[in-house]
């Protein structure tokens, strides 16, 4: 072997070793991911494909035509949009407020306060629904009694049996239930902002609202997007709270798409179930694609 070929062989050998190592790593990665891939395929992709096939079958298209001819679908879509807007905006605003509160120096025992604020998140939905049902009862609920005692109302309010009030009231309960999640995420984000940024800004004469506008909110932009995404998908696909408290009534005024789907399931109408499920799925996919698009833009 000549002295001239020796360095070339070393480099080629090193490249070959690196290539083999990369291939092994890739194979190893695929193997260890395989159980998860199989689980996701069986538990998620297969049901999605089967539902899509059912929805676009002859029975599914007939069910879709029937649904479009009845007022209940339009009502459910409108209710779902209103519910989603109130739930998401409410949870984000109150969650933000709670997160800022926990950061404030004036709050003693922030751990205790955080634990108390987390309670709505921890309480099981069935328990929460039962408690709120009685709390909001027109004749015998504590809320009406308290409001009458302090003189805010003269007559009891029909919170759950008034077609105009029921949906905002239920959405408020959803806000109560989900704001702790927002609070947790945003709290973690706030704690990740370096203290030096604040100090530097204060040295430059920044006041609280400048800190909020130019440091805090930009730092939390990504987390805010994730929180909006998750709470929107949760709200859009909600079912349990509404079903447990009003079953979608009175007179369908609180019927969401999830409630419509469950009613079809109870009747064994698999075609209608598939149609409503596909509608919810398409909206969720659009929301998810927004997230993917944004993530790719940031990576780029």
């Amino acid at each position: 072997m000549s002295a001239l070929s020796a360095p070339v062989d070393h480099a080629a050998a090193a490249r070959e070793r690196a290539r083999r190592s990369a291939r092994r790593t890739t194979q190893h990665g695929w193997l260890t991911s395989l159980p998860g891939i199989v689980a996701v395929t069986v538990l998620c992709l297969v049901p999605i494909v089967m539902t899509l096939v059912e929805a676009f079958s002859a029975e599914g298209l007939a069910a879709a035509r029937t649904l479009l001819e009845t007022p209940v679908l339009g009502r459910a879509v409108r209710n779902t949009v209103v519910w989603t807007v109130i739930s998401v905006v409410g949870a984000v605003l109150i969650g933000y407020g709670a997160a800022f509160l926990l950061q404030h120096r004036a709050v003693r025992w922030p751990g205790l306060v955080r634990s108390l604020l987390l309670l709505p998140w921890i309480v099981p939905q069935v328990v929460a629904a039962t408690i709120w049902c009685w709390y909001l009862s027109q004749d015998f609920g504590l809320l009406n009694r308290m409001l009458q005692v302090i003189g805010l109302i003269d007559d009891p309010v029909d919170w759950l049996s008034n077609t105009s009030l029921v949906l905002p009231v239920l959405a408020s309960i959803q806000v109560w239930s989900t704001f702790p999640f927002v609070m947790l995420i945003i709290s973690a984000g706030l704690q990740g902002i370096p203290e030096e940024l604040y100090e530097a800004a204060r040295l430059d004469g920044a006041r609280s609202h400048h800190l909020l506008r130019y440091i805090v909110l930009p730092s939390l932009r990504d987390l805010t997007f994730i929180v909006l995404l998750i709470t929107t998908i949760w709200a859009f696909n909600s079912f349990a709270l509404v079903w447990l408290i009003t079953s979608g009534g009175p007179a369908d005024s609180s019927t969401l798409l999830g409630v419509l789907l469950y009613r079809a399931f109870q009747q064994g109408d698999t075609a209608r179930v598939a149609v409503v499920a596909v509608l919810q799925f398409l909206v969720s996919v659009v929301i998810a694609l927004l997230y993917v698009k944004r993530t790719r833009e940031e990576d780029a």
Binding site: C133, L136, S137, Q138, D139, D158, L160, S161, G249
Partner: peptide, 12 residues
């Protein structure tokens, strides 16, 4: 009849 009838089931 109870005004909250629209909120009740048999058990309630």
């Amino acid at each position: 009849a109870s005004q909250s009838s629209l909120e009740l089931d048999n058990t309630a």
